[in-house]
Design a protein around this nucleic acid. Structure first.
Lengths: 204, 204
DNA sequence: GCAATATGACCTTTGAGTAAGTTACCATGG
DNA sequence: CCATGGTAACTTACTCAAAGGTCATATTGC
């Protein structure tokens, strides 16, 4: 009764790490690196701060672990879709569909890689650059294809269009976070409707 | 000699306030509220922290002053454009043109109102909500028009499309921040090219 | 008893915010 | 024409709280 919380809870390290990463990813993704405190994560996990430091060394280490897990997930999925044969807008929509499926339980994962409050130097910046490049490269590839079809090969135009494309994905993930009742399937159908509205029903 | 830095520099309050707001807006807009320190702003302005507190009361007060100045600027410009007669995509492009002109020296201003690390309660949240609503309402209006032309009146579709539109503006401002050599005029022409590429040259 | 899981209590750094004073300028009165 | 004092601009040197990070120790299963 004096120390109601003393002693082990018997949760294996891997399970605990997974749980911590889940909670940390949500916090980091939702509020950003700077506005997230390790103590808050520990609280939400029902454990003490030192356990987190024991497993992840530092706040940056924890963030990096989130990046690694999330980045691998995202990059692999986008790469898988890139190996398909969709081209132009179709490829974009296929990518979106994949992202919705993948991120159904956790749309905030996407934002980990576009966090302006994350450290801009050191291992974190490297890690972000790594995955952002990997994702960005595929986006760039898709956009280059699309623009090429329209006869535009200007590198800066392509760079800007890629940024816009990533921004679109970003805003859809944000919107999804504010409408959690929406399923991946519904999100995708909504996007199709938006696309046809934009193109006056002439797409497809 | 004992206190080489003591004493006034004789800069009138209004001038100093303007200078502080310029620097603070850039920091807040670039790195977010949580990742910005008052001391850093004071440093960049070449003054001491207490002077900032003297003029703006608190970090939140400073942020709010940035919001008020920037928000009025943005909202008034968007409202001015909304009173024009452009409709659908044209209205979007007109708005973009206005934003580029207005934000030529300071694209980061836009991000002040979409900062996930800003306090979510209190006067700041109110201020953000005020301007974000004002901007969002106009965006919503434009999007509703556009979607209506295509026969889509679903409120959630409109809400999502508005989010996407704001996300597009956001990503363009970010891209611009990374390409400061670009003029407002050039940005606009680039956007026109992107639009025609998207619509297969059939727009206009 | 040993290794894994776990914690309370601490240290340290960072950054928001403040108290008290300093410097320069300008208006007034003698 | 110079003392006097009021006020605006400005700073040094602090306080205090929150958050990152560490240490010694406790519980439990084998």
């Amino acid at each position: 009764m004096v120390r109601p919380n003393a002693g082990t809870k018997g949760v294996p390290r891997l399970d605990r790490e997974t749980q911590i990463l889940d909670i940390a990813s949500e916090h980091f993704g939702t509020h950003g690196f700077a506005a997230t405190s390790v103590a808050a994560i520990a609280d939400r996990a029902g454990i003490s701060k030192p356990l987190i430091y024991n497993y992840f060394v530092s706040k940056e280490g924890l963030f990096e672990a989130c990046l690694d897990r999330g980045g691998a997930l995202l990059a692999e999925e986008i790469e898988r879709i890139a190996r398909g044969d969709a081209v132009g807008i179709e490829r974009g929509m296929a990518t979106l569909a994949g992202m919705f499926d993948l991120l159904e339980p956790q749309p905030y994962l996407w934002r980990l890689f576009f966090d302006p409050t994350a450290p801009s130097t050191g291992p974190i910046a490297d890690s972000i650059a790594l995955y952002a490049d990997r994702i960005g490269k595929l986006a760039d590839e898709g956009v280059t294809e699309l623009m090429g079809l329209a006869g535009n090969n200007d590198p800066l135009d392509i760079s800007a269009m890629t940024a816009v494309w990533l921004g679109i994905v970003d805003s859809l993930m944000n919107w999804w976070m504010e409408h959690p009742e929406e399923s991946a399937e519904q999100m995708m159908q909504r996007c199709m409707r938006l696309l046809t509205a934009l193109f006056g029903g002439a797409s497809e």
